[in-house]
């Protein structure tokens, strides 16, 4: 049985079609990257996979069960889904809505009905594991970009979800924080967990994914192993993931080569 399966999924807003009869299936235990330029619909897709938005037509199934608004209206389905699936938002100001780091990490477990002592232990443990115990009483507003991202990951991973959805996990981070975040993810995803990452950062692709889906204009335009995708210059250029820079050399020749923007 597939972990996620969409059939003819369409989602639009403001007369803009974000997803256009999208079909995809993601297997249990796989590490998948959704690659696409800004506006390719990958954030929207992640929110739909997390049961936060719902398509206007088509179906989405999670382990064979349809994900509709009616299903999420039942507490039983919603809680069981939220226990298994975690989503880390791109914008840390959206992800970190609690007044302190401690409350942030405790939010998920408390909502899922863990006992208070269990929450206390687990939060302490997670803060230590992510190396953010010293930030416990800090307000998220005054954390550095890298610290914010670590808190965001901790706040979702504290409940140990089997499925992790990540929206641009390394966006707006300095190179060192980027590699720290990737290390954390690689370490965490060592088991049989499923990780779906939306990104336009091609540099990390091989570290975070075994399989790559290229999204363009609300459709999956290619699907292959990361190495293969990275070799396909023509595809990457067409999907706006890389673009050619032209410049003059001293000798006078006009030279052009593809150019990747690691993070924006």
């Amino acid at each position: 049985m597939m972990l996620f399966e969409t059939t003819d999924l369409t989602y639009s807003y403001d007369r803009v079609t974000a997803l256009d009869r999208l079909n995809l299936s993601i297997a249990e235990g796989s590490r998948v990257a959704l690659v696409g330029a800004n506006g390719s619909g990958k954030s929207t897709l992640l929110r739909i996979l997390d049961g936060l938005n719902f398509g206007q037509s088509g179906t989405v199934r999670f382990r064979g069960e349809p994900m509709t608004e009616a299903h999420f209206a039942s507490d039983e389905f919603a809680f069981s889904f939220r226990r298994q699936v975690g989503l880390v938002f791109q914008n840390p100001d959206v992800q970190l809505f609690n007044p302190t780091v401690f409350d942030e990490v405790a939010f998920g477990p408390l909502q899922l009905g863990w006992s208070k002592s269990e929450v206390r232990d687990r939060v302490g443990e997670t803060l230590d594991r992510f190396g953010i115990a010293h930030l416990k009483d800090r307000v998220p507003h005054r954390l550095s970009g890298g610290e914010k991202k670590r808190v965001a990951l901790a706040s979702v991973l504290v409940t140990d979800p089997a499925v992790l959805l990540l929206d641009e996990p390394t966006a707006a981070l300095d190179p060192r924080s980027q590699s720290q975040v990737i290390d954390l993810l690689v370490e965490w995803g060592g088991g049989a967990k499923s990780v779906i990452t939306a990104t336009h950062n091609l540099a990390d692709l091989e570290d975070i994914a075994d399989r790559c889906l290229v999204l363009d204009g609300g459709l999956v335009v290619a699907e292959a192993a990361p190495a293969e995708i990275l070799r396909n210059r023509e595809l990457l250029e067409r999907s706006n993931l890389i673009h050619a820079h032209r410049h003059h050399h001293r000798s006078g020749e006009l030279h052009s080569h593809p150019h990747v923007h690691p993070s924006e």
């Binding site: 807003y13 929207t44 914008n91 707006a172």
Partner: peptide, 24 residues
């Protein structure tokens, strides 16, 4: 009522889905 909740979500999120992340 279900539609109310839903379409509100759509309206709000769609408004921000493509907006750039504010500089931090």
């Amino acid at each position: 009522p279900a539609g109310v909740e839903k379409s509100l979500d759509t309206a709000r999120t769609s408004a921000c889905a493509t907006s750039k992340e504010p500089a931090t």
